[in-house]
Protein backbone atom coordinates (compact mmCIF):
# COMPACT_ATOMS: atom_id res chain seq x y z
CA UNK A 1 0.00 0.00 0.00
CA UNK A 2 1.20 3.53 -0.68
CA UNK A 3 2.07 5.53 2.40
CA UNK A 4 -0.18 8.49 3.26
CA UNK A 5 2.82 10.15 4.85
CA UNK A 6 6.39 9.41 3.84
CA UNK A 7 9.10 11.36 5.63
CA UNK A 8 12.62 10.97 4.24
CA UNK A 9 15.80 12.32 5.77
CA UNK A 10 14.05 15.19 7.56
CA UNK A 11 16.55 17.44 9.32
CA UNK A 12 15.70 20.54 11.33
CA UNK A 13 18.32 22.78 12.88
CA UNK A 14 18.19 25.73 15.25
CA UNK A 15 20.88 28.37 15.27
CA UNK A 16 21.06 29.16 18.98
CA UNK A 17 23.44 31.27 21.02
CA UNK A 18 25.01 28.08 22.32
CA UNK A 19 25.71 26.83 18.80
CA UNK A 20 23.92 24.94 16.03
CA UNK A 21 21.43 22.44 17.42
CA UNK A 22 20.17 19.63 15.22
CA UNK A 23 16.80 18.97 16.81
CA UNK A 24 15.67 16.55 14.11
CA UNK A 25 18.50 14.55 12.60
CA UNK A 26 17.90 12.58 9.39
CA UNK A 27 14.48 11.28 10.42
CA UNK A 28 12.68 8.89 8.06
CA UNK A 29 9.42 7.00 8.52
CA UNK A 30 6.22 6.21 6.64
CA UNK A 31 2.61 5.85 7.79
CA UNK A 32 0.06 3.97 5.74
CA UNK A 33 -3.62 4.99 5.56
CA UNK A 34 -5.62 3.98 8.63
CA UNK A 35 -2.54 3.27 10.71
CA UNK A 36 -1.42 5.05 13.86
CA UNK A 37 2.29 5.66 14.31
CA UNK A 38 3.46 6.45 17.83
CA UNK A 39 6.45 8.81 17.90
CA UNK A 40 7.88 8.29 21.38
CA UNK A 41 10.60 10.19 23.16
CA UNK A 42 11.52 12.12 26.27
CA UNK A 43 11.82 15.88 26.52
CA UNK A 44 14.38 17.22 24.06
CA UNK A 45 14.26 14.13 21.86
CA UNK A 46 12.91 16.14 18.91
CA UNK A 47 9.54 14.37 18.68
CA UNK A 48 7.47 17.56 18.72
CA UNK A 49 9.82 19.42 16.38
CA UNK A 50 9.46 16.49 13.97
CA UNK A 51 5.69 17.02 14.04
CA UNK A 52 6.03 20.75 13.44
CA UNK A 53 8.59 20.20 10.68
CA UNK A 54 6.21 17.92 8.78
CA UNK A 55 3.78 20.83 8.47
CA UNK A 56 6.58 23.32 7.83
CA UNK A 57 5.80 25.16 11.06
CA UNK A 58 9.40 26.08 11.85
CA UNK A 59 10.37 29.74 12.32
CA UNK A 60 13.77 31.40 12.52
CA UNK A 61 16.19 30.70 14.13
CA UNK A 62 15.02 27.23 13.14
CA UNK A 63 15.36 25.87 9.64
CA UNK A 64 14.36 22.65 7.93
CA UNK A 65 17.66 22.00 6.25
CA UNK A 66 17.07 18.73 4.43
CA UNK A 67 14.61 15.99 3.62
CA UNK A 68 11.31 15.28 1.95
CA UNK A 69 7.79 15.20 3.40
CA UNK A 70 5.57 13.30 0.98
CA UNK A 71 1.83 13.47 1.62
CA UNK A 72 -0.01 11.23 -0.86
CA UNK A 73 3.10 11.56 -3.02
CA UNK A 74 3.33 15.39 -2.96
CA UNK A 75 6.48 16.78 -1.37
CA UNK A 76 5.37 19.54 1.01
CA UNK A 77 8.91 20.88 1.13
CA UNK A 78 8.91 21.86 -2.54
CA UNK A 79 5.58 23.71 -2.41
CA UNK A 80 5.28 27.49 -2.58
CA UNK A 81 3.88 29.10 0.61
CA UNK A 82 0.40 29.48 -0.94
CA UNK A 83 0.25 25.87 -2.09
CA UNK A 84 1.51 24.69 1.31
CA UNK A 85 -1.26 26.68 3.02
CA UNK A 86 -3.82 24.92 0.83
CA UNK A 87 -2.44 21.57 2.01
CA UNK A 88 -2.45 22.43 5.70
CA UNK A 89 -5.78 21.68 7.30
CA UNK A 90 -7.05 20.02 4.11
CA UNK A 91 -4.62 17.15 3.53
CA UNK A 92 -2.50 17.33 6.70
CA UNK A 93 -3.92 18.59 9.97
CA UNK A 94 -2.48 18.99 13.44
CA UNK A 95 -3.87 18.56 16.95
CA UNK A 96 -1.92 20.25 19.74
CA UNK A 97 -1.45 19.44 23.40
CA UNK A 98 -3.43 22.34 24.79
CA UNK A 99 -6.80 22.83 23.06
CA UNK A 100 -7.19 26.22 24.76
CA UNK A 101 -4.24 27.42 22.64
CA UNK A 102 -5.81 26.15 19.40
CA UNK A 103 -9.33 27.40 19.95
CA UNK A 104 -10.12 31.09 19.71
CA UNK A 105 -11.65 32.03 23.09
CA UNK A 106 -13.89 34.80 21.71
CA UNK A 107 -15.50 32.81 18.89
CA UNK A 108 -18.24 30.22 19.19
CA UNK A 109 -17.03 26.70 18.46
CA UNK A 110 -19.31 26.53 15.41
CA UNK A 111 -18.07 29.84 13.98
CA UNK A 112 -14.43 28.84 14.15
CA UNK A 113 -15.08 25.37 12.80
CA UNK A 114 -17.14 26.83 9.95
CA UNK A 115 -14.30 29.22 9.23
CA UNK A 116 -11.93 26.27 8.96
CA UNK A 117 -14.31 24.66 6.46
CA UNK A 118 -14.69 27.80 4.33
CA UNK A 119 -10.94 28.52 4.16
CA UNK A 120 -10.61 25.56 1.82
CA UNK A 121 -14.10 24.93 0.43
CA UNK A 122 -16.41 27.44 -1.18
CA UNK A 123 -19.63 26.52 0.64
CA UNK A 124 -22.35 28.48 2.40
CA UNK A 125 -22.10 29.27 6.08
CA UNK A 126 -25.03 27.00 6.72
CA UNK A 127 -23.40 24.07 4.91
CA UNK A 128 -20.19 24.73 6.84
CA UNK A 129 -22.07 24.59 10.17
CA UNK A 130 -23.66 21.32 9.08
CA UNK A 131 -20.25 19.87 8.37
CA UNK A 132 -18.98 21.10 11.73
CA UNK A 133 -21.92 19.38 13.45
CA UNK A 134 -21.25 16.15 11.58
CA UNK A 135 -17.59 16.32 12.62
CA UNK A 136 -18.55 16.77 16.30
CA UNK A 137 -20.83 13.74 15.95
CA UNK A 138 -17.96 11.62 14.65
CA UNK A 139 -15.79 12.35 17.71
CA UNK A 140 -18.59 11.34 20.06
CA UNK A 141 -19.74 14.74 21.33
CA UNK A 142 -23.34 14.47 22.56
CA UNK A 143 -25.81 17.25 21.63
CA UNK A 144 -23.44 18.51 18.92
CA UNK A 145 -25.80 21.25 17.70
CA UNK A 146 -25.81 22.87 21.14
CA UNK A 147 -22.05 22.55 21.56
CA UNK A 148 -21.53 24.46 18.32
CA UNK A 149 -23.13 27.51 19.91
CA UNK A 150 -20.88 27.29 22.99
CA UNK A 151 -17.67 29.24 23.57
CA UNK A 152 -14.52 27.23 24.32
CA UNK A 153 -14.47 28.21 28.02
CA UNK A 154 -17.89 26.63 28.45
CA UNK A 155 -16.50 23.21 27.52
CA UNK A 156 -14.46 20.83 29.67
CA UNK A 157 -10.86 20.02 28.76
CA UNK A 158 -11.83 16.70 27.24
CA UNK A 159 -14.59 18.32 25.17
CA UNK A 160 -12.22 21.01 23.93
CA UNK A 161 -9.74 18.38 22.79
CA UNK A 162 -12.56 16.56 20.98
CA UNK A 163 -13.44 19.84 19.26
CA UNK A 164 -9.80 20.23 18.22
CA UNK A 165 -9.79 16.69 16.82
CA UNK A 166 -13.13 17.28 15.08
CA UNK A 167 -11.69 20.45 13.52
CA UNK A 168 -8.70 18.48 12.27
CA UNK A 169 -11.14 15.99 10.70
CA UNK A 170 -13.26 18.59 8.86
CA UNK A 171 -11.56 18.12 5.52
CA UNK A 172 -11.01 14.39 5.88
CA UNK A 173 -7.23 14.85 5.75
CA UNK A 174 -4.94 11.99 4.74
CA UNK A 175 -2.69 12.66 7.70
CA UNK A 176 -3.20 14.01 11.22
CA UNK A 177 -0.24 14.93 13.41
CA UNK A 178 -1.26 14.82 17.09
CA UNK A 179 1.23 16.34 19.54
CA UNK A 180 0.68 14.98 23.08
CA UNK A 181 -3.09 15.48 22.69
CA UNK A 182 -4.11 13.59 25.83
CA UNK A 183 -1.23 14.52 28.13
CA UNK A 184 -3.18 17.31 29.84
CA UNK A 185 -6.34 15.23 30.27
CA UNK A 186 -7.57 13.05 33.12
CA UNK A 187 -7.09 9.31 32.69
CA UNK A 188 -10.78 8.48 32.26
CA UNK A 189 -11.12 11.21 29.60
CA UNK A 190 -7.87 10.12 27.96
CA UNK A 191 -9.28 6.60 27.67
CA UNK A 192 -12.37 7.93 25.89
CA UNK A 193 -10.31 9.93 23.40
CA UNK A 194 -7.91 7.07 22.68
CA UNK A 195 -10.85 4.80 21.91
CA UNK A 196 -12.37 7.44 19.57
CA UNK A 197 -9.07 8.03 17.77
CA UNK A 198 -8.54 4.33 17.21
CA UNK A 199 -12.06 4.04 15.77
CA UNK A 200 -11.53 7.12 13.55
CA UNK A 201 -8.31 5.74 12.10
CA UNK A 202 -9.98 2.42 11.36
CA UNK A 203 -13.13 3.94 9.87
CA UNK A 204 -11.84 6.97 7.95
CA UNK A 205 -8.46 5.61 6.85
CA UNK A 206 -6.68 8.70 8.16
CA UNK A 207 -3.01 8.10 8.92
CA UNK A 208 -2.17 9.42 12.38
CA UNK A 209 1.19 10.35 13.89
CA UNK A 210 0.75 10.31 17.67
CA UNK A 211 3.58 12.20 19.36
CA UNK A 212 3.92 11.28 23.04
CA UNK A 213 6.24 10.53 25.93
CA UNK A 214 3.86 7.89 27.28
CA UNK A 215 4.84 4.34 26.33
CA UNK A 216 1.70 2.83 27.84
CA UNK A 217 -0.49 5.03 25.64
CA UNK A 218 1.27 4.12 22.41
CA UNK A 219 1.46 0.46 23.28
CA UNK A 220 -2.31 0.28 23.49
CA UNK A 221 -3.10 2.72 20.66
CA UNK A 222 -0.46 2.58 17.94
CA UNK A 223 0.18 0.08 15.15
CA UNK A 224 3.78 1.17 14.70
CA UNK A 225 6.26 2.89 16.99
CA UNK A 226 9.33 5.04 16.35
CA UNK A 227 11.52 5.79 19.37
CA UNK A 228 13.47 9.06 19.25
CA UNK A 229 16.56 10.02 21.20
CA UNK A 230 18.55 13.24 20.78
CA UNK A 231 16.95 14.04 17.43
CA UNK A 232 17.25 10.64 15.81
CA UNK A 233 14.96 7.68 15.42
CA UNK A 234 16.88 4.96 17.25
CA UNK A 235 14.39 2.15 16.77
CA UNK A 236 11.24 1.55 14.76
CA UNK A 237 8.89 -1.34 14.15
CA UNK A 238 5.40 -2.55 14.90
CA UNK A 239 4.12 -1.88 18.43
CA UNK A 240 4.46 -5.60 19.24
CA UNK A 241 8.07 -5.66 18.05
CA UNK A 242 9.20 -2.49 19.81
CA UNK A 243 7.39 -3.07 23.12
CA UNK A 244 7.64 -6.87 23.13
CA UNK A 245 11.23 -7.30 21.97
CA UNK A 246 13.07 -3.97 21.91
CA UNK A 247 16.43 -3.98 20.12
CA UNK A 248 17.88 -0.64 21.20
CA UNK A 249 19.25 -0.43 24.77
CA UNK A 250 17.49 2.92 25.22
CA UNK A 251 14.08 1.45 24.38
CA UNK A 252 14.80 -1.46 26.72
CA UNK A 253 15.71 1.02 29.48
CA UNK A 254 12.56 3.07 28.92
CA UNK A 255 10.30 0.04 29.10
CA UNK A 256 12.10 -1.33 32.15
CA UNK A 257 11.66 1.93 34.08
CA UNK A 258 7.85 1.70 33.92
CA UNK A 259 6.73 0.79 37.47
CA UNK A 260 3.79 -1.46 36.53
CA UNK A 261 6.15 -4.14 35.20
CA UNK A 262 7.88 -4.67 38.54
CA UNK A 263 6.84 -5.98 41.97
CA UNK A 264 5.77 -3.07 44.21
CA UNK A 265 8.40 -1.58 46.48
CA UNK A 266 11.37 -3.03 44.62
CA UNK A 267 13.97 -0.68 43.14
CA UNK A 268 13.22 0.10 39.51
CA UNK A 269 15.84 -0.46 36.83
CA UNK A 270 16.86 3.07 35.93
CA UNK A 271 18.71 4.70 33.08
CA UNK A 272 21.59 6.60 34.68
CA UNK A 273 22.34 10.21 33.88
CA UNK A 274 19.97 12.70 32.34
CA UNK A 275 18.55 13.47 28.92
CA UNK A 276 21.32 15.01 26.79
CA UNK A 277 21.78 18.65 25.92
CA UNK A 278 21.57 18.88 22.13
CA UNK A 279 24.25 21.58 22.02
CA UNK A 280 26.86 19.28 23.48
CA UNK A 281 26.23 15.83 22.08
CA UNK A 282 28.96 13.26 22.45
CA UNK A 283 30.49 11.91 19.27
CA UNK A 284 28.98 8.78 17.77
CA UNK A 285 25.96 7.38 19.56
CA UNK A 286 24.35 10.06 21.76
CA UNK A 287 23.09 7.43 24.21
CA UNK A 288 26.63 6.14 24.78
CA UNK A 289 27.26 7.85 28.19
CA UNK A 290 24.10 6.29 29.67
CA UNK A 291 24.24 2.93 27.92
CA UNK A 292 25.09 -0.30 29.77
CA UNK A 293 26.28 -1.94 26.50
CA UNK A 294 28.52 0.88 25.31
CA UNK A 295 32.06 0.07 24.17
CA UNK A 296 34.80 2.04 22.44
CA UNK A 297 33.26 1.55 19.03
CA UNK A 298 30.19 3.54 20.16
CA UNK A 299 32.23 6.73 19.77
CA UNK A 300 31.71 6.28 16.04
CA UNK A 301 28.34 6.77 14.34
CA UNK A 302 26.13 3.74 14.96
CA UNK A 303 24.90 1.74 11.95
CA UNK A 304 21.24 1.07 11.20
CA UNK A 305 20.76 -2.68 11.44
CA UNK A 306 17.76 -4.58 10.15
CA UNK A 307 15.02 -3.55 7.73
CA UNK A 308 11.90 -5.01 9.35
CA UNK A 309 12.62 -3.72 12.86
CA UNK A 310 15.66 -1.47 12.49
CA UNK A 311 17.74 -0.16 15.38
CA UNK A 312 20.46 2.48 15.27
CA UNK A 313 23.04 0.78 17.46
CA UNK A 314 26.46 -0.88 17.43
CA UNK A 315 25.30 -3.46 19.96
CA UNK A 316 21.57 -4.13 19.50
CA UNK A 317 19.96 -6.49 22.01
CA UNK A 318 18.99 -8.93 19.30
CA UNK A 319 20.47 -9.43 15.86
CA UNK A 320 18.53 -8.10 12.89
CA UNK A 321 15.69 -10.45 11.99
CA UNK A 322 16.39 -12.21 8.72
Amino acid sequence: MNAALDVRGLTTRFDTRGGMVTAVNDVSFAVEPGRIMGLVGESGSGKSVTGFSILGLIDAPGEISAGQVLVDGTDLRTLAPDALRRMRGRRVAMVFQDPMMTLNPVLRVGDQMAMAVRVHDNVSKRAAWDRARAALDTVGIPAAAERLRAYPHQLSGGMRQRVAIATALLHRPSVIIADEPTTALDVSIQGQILAEVRRLADETGTAIVWVTHDLAVVSSLADDICVMYAGRIVESGTAEQVIGAPRHPYTRGLIDSVPSLHPPGQPLPQIPGSTPQLVNLPSGCPFRPRCPRATEICATDPPLSGTDHPALCHHPLTEAPA
Binding site: S156, V187, I189, G191, R198, S220, I243, S260
Partner: peptide, 18 residues
Protein backbone atom coordinates in the same frame (compact mmCIF):
# COMPACT_ATOMS: atom_id res chain seq x y z
CA UNK B 1 -9.57 2.93 31.40
CA UNK B 2 -5.82 3.27 31.94
CA UNK B 3 -3.62 1.98 29.14
CA UNK B 4 -0.95 -0.29 30.54
CA UNK B 5 2.21 -1.44 28.91
CA UNK B 6 2.16 -4.88 27.42
CA UNK B 7 -1.59 -5.47 27.29
CA UNK B 8 -1.70 -4.98 23.54
CA UNK B 9 -3.77 -2.71 21.36
CA UNK B 10 -6.90 -0.99 22.68
CA UNK B 11 -7.25 -3.33 25.62
CA UNK B 12 -8.78 -0.57 27.75
CA UNK B 13 -12.39 0.33 28.44
CA UNK B 14 -13.10 4.05 28.81
CA UNK B 15 -15.53 5.34 31.45
CA UNK B 16 -18.56 7.03 29.94
CA UNK B 17 -19.35 10.68 30.62
CA UNK B 18 -17.54 13.61 32.16
Amino acid sequence: SVPTLGTGRAAFQPIEGE
